[in-house]
């Protein structure tokens, strides 16, 4: 499996660490309330198909938003957060 780092290009999957969906970038305000924080921390769209995910490229320490298909594992895009 290969993933794309926005800085280094296509690399072996072993260089990357998965973190979670890209929705984690939209962090609620501290006082957003229990429901908002619950949705942020726990609930997931978990899409079957195109998925935007946060990955860490260990060798260059860059975080990336990688667009990937969860049915085929095809990578469609990669960008800095």
């Amino acid at each position: 499996m290969r993933l794309t780092c926005p800085h280094c290009g296509a690399r072996d999957r072993r260089e990357f660490t998965y973190h979670g969906p890209a929705s984690l970038l939209d962090r609620p305000a501290p006082d957003a309330g229990e429901a908002a924080w619950n949705a942020y921390l726990h609930l997931r769209d978990n899409p079957e198909g195109e998925s935007r995910e946060l990955w860490y490229h260990e060798p260059c320490r860059a975080w990336a938003v990688i667009t990937r298909d969860t049915r085929t594992h095809a990578v469609h895009g990669s960008a800095a957060p």
């Binding site: 499996m1 072993r14 969906p21 995910e53 990937r68 049915r71």
Partner: peptide
């Protein structure tokens, strides 16, 4: 394999 997937298969790492 540590990435979301609906494909019932894994990879080499």
């Amino acid at each position: 394999d540590f990435h979301p997937s609906y494909a019932q298969r894994g990879n080499l790492p």
